[in-house]
Design a protein around this nucleic acid. Sequence first.
DNA 1: TGAATAGTGTCTCTCAGACAATATAAC
DNA 2: GTTATATTGTCTGAGAGACACTATTCA
Lengths: 230, 230
Amino acid sequence: MSDYPGLVALAVDVVTLTVRDDKLHILLVQRSIDPFVGQWTLPGVFLAKKWMGKEWEELTDAAERALESKAGLVAHVEQLGTYGSRGRDPRNHVVSVAYIAFAPDLGDPTPGPHVSDAKWEPVAALEGGWGLEGLAFDHNAIALDGVIRAQNKLEYTTLATRFLPEEFTIGDLQKVYEAVWMREIDSGNFYRKVKQTKGFIVPINERRGRAQLYVAGEATMLYPPIRKGD
Amino acid sequence: MSDYPGLVALAVDVVTLTVRDDKLHILLVQRSIDPFVGQWTLPGVFLAKKWMGKEWEELTDAAERALESKAGLVAHVEQLGTYGSRGRDPRNHVVSVAYIAFAPDLGDPTPGPHVSDAKWEPVAALEGGWGLEGLAFDHNAIALDGVIRAQNKLEYTTLATRFLPEEFTIGDLQKVYEAVWMREIDSGNFYRKVKQTKGFIVPINERRGRAQLYVAGEATMLYPPIRKGD
DNA sequence: TGAATAGTGTCTCTCAGACAATATAAC
DNA sequence: GTTATATTGTCTGAGAGACACTATTCA
């Protein structure tokens, strides 16, 4: 750390994933300003120099602000990766720190400033692109990395419960795995597997129909993992 | 992506890991300029505005330049994460993109400009810190994240071969796993496991003593993974 | 009444861990 | 010869995948 620091514009973009109608969806916003007017992108903001009375905003705060200000949604985020290729922004050099958010069904988004529309876009089980090819900047690649990250994290973490409301059934949980992995799972095996993994889900004294309801347990990692195969 | 872009200084720091004397080591350099003169850090540079005749350097190029210019070493890098907390640099706000490099034993490093010394530091099997507590900036945390990342990637990728020269024995490979995971492995089980994972290692028509020599295969992912346990 | 969902049970195969055994090179 | 390393083999138990079966709720 020395030499001659060039100063760069730092953007923060968010891949927000949810499960609606038993299918994986990603949050997109439509730009109403240049560059790329009218095109769809991930919600993002520039890192603010002043924020809450302090110098410079934290990266995670910026990511949550992007979600809130562009789409009116609130969710926790975690870092995905940083994208700094030349030419990814036509104006000048912009490095973008991407975040990923896993949300339960939050309802429809509300377009914020500089955004003409906002929507949940289904992520289709297509080869390579998953139907995410039309985005501006390099947001196709970022969105793809986000989906892959989510698929992998379902294997070895308890992340799946973050797509669900407080109380859920094992069937609900199975549908999250099926939506994110885009494949069917044998429910008998899934029941056995999920119930024997201690700390993953905790039964409560309530049922929906004849289905037992559960809440998320305190575990964050799954040992052994639930393999998605291949 | 809109609003008011504040401009930040972007640093790139590298966690370089190797296995020497059957133990995991990390590359450190000693600063000869302010701030933190005399303290040890990860090698890093600021992203250059002009590089190879073009505007702005690529992030991975900057990471490899950090290794080369500060320690005289050449290795491939991959991204680890981005660190942007307020107060991580005493001068002003600096966001750092951290990279990780996995290298075979490259010999001793050569201190470059603004560096008074460079060394391979053993990563000890201590609780929490692994003996990496004395670094400047937030480089303790970055180094720790790098070691954990390496431990995890050995499970499900063929990364371990990147710590070895072209040709190696299964015993050599086992020592890499033992050094990075800091635990002993049963060699009988390890032999069986590694040989039945197709694409991981390929035998060549040569031996060292009575040990069969291998080269890395074309696989990058391991299915099923080699679990480190816990 | 029938279909979808919730949940249990069973069988087989693979694989991981523990550990024994053997063979050969190096000292 | 002795020791360390390389390599194969054997046994056991846990867990995954395939699939059958039952019970109950809802349309």
